[in-house]
Design a binder for these strands. Structure first.
Lengths: 202, 202
DNA sequence: ACCTGAACACCGTTCAAGT
DNA sequence: ACCTGAACACCGTTCAAGT
């Protein structure tokens, strides 16, 4: 297990992120990154053991863009800040964002974020034994929502359904007037409000 | 846009699913599927326009394994049945499961599932205007939870954290005794119970 | 310490052809 | 109607070598 150089790691990750943002995750090849950095593909292997580790590095880079931590705010405001920051990240880097849920990389900034969430839940009065579970509940929803949005799971579905009404979907028919939201900001806010009521019933 | 043959589509999708289950999503290549079906790679292109469409077909196949619909149950039981069925699917096909969140394919069985969820929410007394949003909230959480579980986001994180205690994660330190769950069945059940209280406060 | 070149074993897909 | 063979433009990665 050789030792890795670190000197140009940030530069390489920047190049990788730029490629993914501009041309999609599929275009993110070792060869493309190398070309952008101005180096031979093999030179990258001095900085990352393989492509998987480069992707882990990318996840770390993304999480570094978050981390608000504005103490002096209420616990609701702090939890909300994390949630909206994650969603913003998804919209800024839609093609890389799925890696946050797919790859299991534990980065310092990620841990820091979880710690802030723990603290907010403690301040909210959630019993210590429940805090980690509730944090996972919240983060799972937030990550899932952001992913659904950028992957098109939400919008694509509701668009598609309008075409094939009828047949055997009685509930869809009854809800015909309510199937077209398209204000995801408002929906996300409503969802967060509902979830806050799990944490502490108002 | 040529017309596709359908005759051997199910056979091809079975082969694809078997490969992914046995050797992972990365091993799922057109060439591997072709070999398993006993045919040249190019023969597949008579049944699916490209690999993406084959993956969409796979998503449809997975959703076909679900669809409980046991009327005569309470709305809680019906919603729970869907949630647990999705989670079971994730554990049976861990490497393909992420496609459900990543790919935006709208299949008949998927729509059917959503319709059942809508009906349960209506029966629960959720106002018509809120039903689609609450369904998205629930499905987002359930898919996200199942994905986090099979991708290792949950277990990996909690395992990792035990090593690097100390430093600057005060909340982690305070929660030291509660950071090791590992009974995900129980956690999923607790989460669903909390979410049901969003739908209808008891 | 850092990088290169050539090579290996793979990919998805097109095109023209065969029965 | 269904399938094949050869080819193209890609991949990630190893190995030996060069400064």
């Amino acid at each position: 297990m050789r030792k890795l150089k670190t000197s140009r790691q940030p530069e390489i990750l920047d190049a990788a992120l730029a490629i993914a943002d501009e041309r999609g995750l599929e275009a993110l090849s070792m060869r493309a990154v190398a070309e952008r950095v101005g180096v031979t593909p093999m030179a990258l292997y001095g900085y990352f053991r393989n492509k998987d580790e480069l992707l882990d590095g990318l996840v770390g880079r993304l999480l570094g863009e978050l981390v608000p931590d504005d103490p002096g705010q209420t616990w609701q405001e702090r939890l909300g800040a994390i949630a909206w920051a994650i969603r913003r990240l998804a919209r800024e880097h839609p093609t890389v964002f799925p890696l946050l849920l797919l790859r299991t990389s534990v980065t310092p900034d990620g841990v820091k974020l979880v710690d802030l969430a723990y603290q907010a839940l403690l301040d909210a009065g959630v019993p210590e034994a429940d805090v980690p579970r509730v944090e996972r509940l919240m983060s799972t929803f937030v990550l899932g929502f952001a992913l659904s949005e950028v992957s098109g799971r939400f919008s694509h579905a509701s668009r598609e359904i309008r075409h094939r009404r009828g047949t055997d979907m009685p509930a869809h028919q009854r809800l015909a007037g309510h199937l077209t939201p398209d204000d995801w900001d408002a929906e996300f806010a409503d969802d967060l409000a509902d979830l806050m009521r799990i944490i502490r019933p108002v």
